[in-house]
Amino acid sequence: MSAGPEVSESVRDAELPGRLLATERDAFMPLLRATPEERFGLRTACPGWTVRDVLAHCGAALIRVVEGRLEPGVFSPESNAVDVAERADWPLARVLDELERGFTEAGPVIAAAGGPLDPVALGEWVHAGDVRDAFGVPGAYAGEGAEAALDLLVIASRKRGKPLLRADLLDDDGLRDGRSLELGVAADGRAPARLTCDVPTLIRLCTGRSLVGTRYELAGAEEKELSLYA
């Protein structure tokens, strides 16, 4: 897991997004294939979207990357809504097949792009967490891919100019586990914000997800300042 010195493009791990996508494919697709179809109508943390809608968006985004269909405005709310609507009449199996193909094929394309597409992998992992959360699966924003996701989160927070934040991580028992992360960038005259929480709560804070039932200590910044999507 990256922490401490700022990550530069010269030390970018080009294979990291692909590893995260492959890890998520292997963990996530069996869950989806084994879930009764009626549960795909459950609402998610994404306003207005069901589980099926989230998965349609995820598959569409990855296949756009694979096929190089990245015209201006792609991944905007309007573009995402069109992609989801285009898949409304697809059989669920086709939605899942497209998603699995994207998980499998997008990694090399993202690696070759040089960095701009790296956040796509992080977004896919977060959306998988949204689905697990809707299904009531424990550890929705944790699991095997969490370490790679945290690395991408650090990089994304710096690229998007979020306030400098030093986060001390807690284990499942609420005890400090010795890990810390430095996210965001320094601003003149502003002291670093400090955060103590577990990994799922950090993900929720930085992606604007619900904080109901979480426990954390934050000083020197407001919740909304930490979100990558604010």
Rank of each mutant, 00 (worst) to 15 (best):
residue 184 G to D: 03
residue 74 V to M: 10
residue 152 L to T: 04
residue 153 L to M: 15
residue 219 A to L: 05
residue 18 G to H: 07
residue 112 A to W: 12
residue 201 T to C: 13
residue 124 E to C: 07
residue 186 A to T: 00
residue 111 A to K: 11
residue 197 C to K: 11
residue 188 D to R: 15
residue 179 R to T: 12
residue 205 L to D: 09
residue 80 N to L: 08
residue 64 R to F: 01
residue 57 H to N: 13
residue 25 R to M: 01
residue 206 C to I: 09
residue 171 D to K: 07
residue 34 A to W: 11
residue 85 A to G: 04
residue 99 L to C: 03
residue 69 R to N: 10
residue 116 P to M: 14
residue 131 V to R: 11
residue 210 S to N: 08
residue 140 A to R: 09
residue 3 A to W: 14
residue 181 L to D: 05
residue 216 Y to V: 14
residue 36 P to N: 03
residue 188 D to A: 15
residue 91 P to H: 00
residue 97 D to V: 08
residue 119 P to Y: 09
residue 63 I to C: 01
residue 64 R to H: 05
residue 56 A to S: 06
residue 13 D to H: 00
residue 139 G to E: 11
residue 65 V to N: 09
residue 114 G to P: 04
residue 75 F to W: 11
residue 62 L to Y: 01
residue 81 A to Y: 01
residue 103 F to H: 09
residue 206 C to L: 15
residue 120 V to W: 07
residue 75 F to H: 13
residue 187 A to Q: 14
residue 121 A to V: 14
residue 70 L to P: 09
residue 190 R to A: 10
residue 58 C to G: 07
residue 82 V to P: 02
residue 159 K to C: 07
residue 85 A to S: 04
residue 156 A to C: 04
residue 220 G to P: 00
residue 65 V to H: 09
residue 215 R to L: 01
residue 144 E to P: 01
residue 95 V to E: 06
residue 30 P to F: 11
residue 205 L to R: 04
residue 170 L to H: 04
residue 102 G to Y: 00
residue 145 G to D: 07
residue 109 V to I: 11
residue 58 C to K: 14
residue 112 A to P: 01
residue 185 V to S: 07
residue 212 V to C: 03
residue 201 T to D: 04
residue 101 R to A: 05
residue 10 S to P: 01
residue 144 E to K: 10
residue 41 G to P: 04
residue 81 A to L: 13
residue 54 V to Y: 06
residue 2 S to D: 10
residue 1 M to K: 01
residue 170 L to C: 05
residue 11 V to M: 13
residue 169 L to A: 07
residue 89 D to K: 08
residue 71 E to C: 06
residue 65 V to K: 12
residue 215 R to N: 12
residue 27 A to K: 12
residue 72 P to R: 12
residue 131 V to N: 04
residue 90 W to H: 06
residue 196 T to S: 14
residue 12 R to V: 06
residue 78 E to M: 08
residue 211 L to V: 08
residue 43 R to D: 11
residue 195 L to V: 09
residue 189 G to L: 13
residue 22 A to Q: 10
residue 153 L to F: 02
residue 10 S to N: 10
residue 140 A to K: 02
residue 206 C to T: 15
residue 90 W to T: 02
residue 161 G to Q: 12
residue 52 R to M: 07
residue 176 R to W: 13
residue 87 R to P: 00
residue 27 A to D: 07
residue 183 L to T: 01
residue 172 D to L: 13
residue 137 V to Y: 14
residue 21 L to R: 11
residue 195 L to N: 09
residue 18 G to Q: 13
residue 89 D to L: 14
residue 156 A to P: 01
residue 151 D to N: 03
residue 132 R to G: 05
residue 25 R to K: 10
residue 30 P to S: 10
residue 201 T to L: 08
residue 204 R to H: 08
residue 9 E to C: 03
residue 73 G to S: 05
residue 63 I to Q: 03
residue 116 P to S: 13
residue 107 G to R: 08
residue 144 E to R: 11
residue 208 G to T: 03
residue 99 L to I: 13
residue 53 D to V: 02
residue 82 V to E: 15
residue 34 A to T: 12
residue 32 L to H: 05
residue 66 V to W: 12
residue 101 R to N: 05
residue 138 P to F: 06
